Computed example of a mutant assay.
Amino acid sequence: MDRYNAEGYPDPTAAEALENIMREEKAKNYKPCVFICSPFAGDIEKNLNKAREYLKFAVKQGTIPFAPHLLYPQVLDDGDPEQRKLGLYFGMVWLRKCDELWVFGRYISKGMQAEINKASKHRIPIRYFSENCEEVQKL
């Protein structure tokens, strides 16, 4: 944003007004980033299908969702402890960049609990949903 007028003199009032207009426009189109927290291990095929449903639900709610357990198992071996640790770390980095954590289902795995703890520690809002995508109180 140029803070100078046509003659080269500082013009903070006009620059601030334009910045405010741009900020308001951005707010109209703002979509929060949400981190999808749901089980992965166990019945992996079922859990991945459910995670896809949760991702679609979050999109329909007007968010930008991120589900690390749909991404990283494609390139990392969850059966290898070092690669699993790396995938969990990657997820935690993304969690810090999200606006909210959405937890799905009644069962809370160790990985999910770690994500919930991290969100709590960093005061990231946490919302809980049933497996049917109905918002519920903390499980």
Rank of each mutant, 00 (worst) to 15 (best):
F57T: 02
I44A: 02
E16M: 01
I126Q: 09
I21N: 01
N117S: 11
N132H: 07
Y9M: 09
N117D: 14
Y30T: 11
E19H: 10
D99P: 01
A27D: 11
S38Y: 06
F40Q: 03
A119W: 10
R123P: 07
K110Q: 10
Y89I: 00
Q61T: 09
A27N: 11
L48V: 07
C98R: 03
L139I: 08
N49I: 03
D99E: 09
Y30P: 00
T13K: 03
P32K: 15
K31I: 14
L18G: 01
Y72R: 01
H122Q: 05
I108W: 04
I108V: 10
W102G: 00
V75A: 11
L70Y: 08
E131C: 04
W94G: 00
D11P: 02
M22D: 10
G111Q: 03
V93H: 09
A41I: 00
V103R: 03
A51D: 03
S120A: 12
K56W: 09
N5D: 13
K50E: 14
S130P: 02
K118P: 00
R123T: 14
T63R: 04
R106C: 03
N49H: 06
P12I: 14
F90C: 08
D11T: 01
Y4W: 05
I126R: 03
E53W: 04
C133F: 11
P65H: 11
G42K: 05
G87W: 02
I108Q: 09
Q74P: 01
K26L: 06
D99F: 12
R3H: 07
S130T: 13
S120C: 10
E134W: 06
A58Q: 06
Y54F: 14
E24K: 13
D11K: 02
E134K: 14
N20K: 15
E7D: 05
L139P: 13
P65E: 15
K60L: 13
N29D: 10
F40K: 07
S130Y: 09
R52V: 09
V75F: 15
S130K: 11
R127F: 04
L70M: 05
G8C: 11
W102N: 02
A67F: 04
W102F: 10
A51H: 03
S38K: 06
R3Q: 07
D80I: 13
I44C: 04
P81S: 13
R127G: 08
I116E: 09
L71Q: 02
V103W: 07
L101K: 08
K97S: 15
R96K: 14
K31V: 04
P32G: 07
R3W: 13
Q113T: 05
G87N: 04
Y4T: 04
A15V: 11
P68V: 04
K97A: 06
S109E: 09
D77T: 01
A51W: 02
G8V: 08
I36M: 07
T63W: 05
G62Y: 15
Y72G: 00
P32N: 08
P32C: 12
R52H: 12
V75N: 05
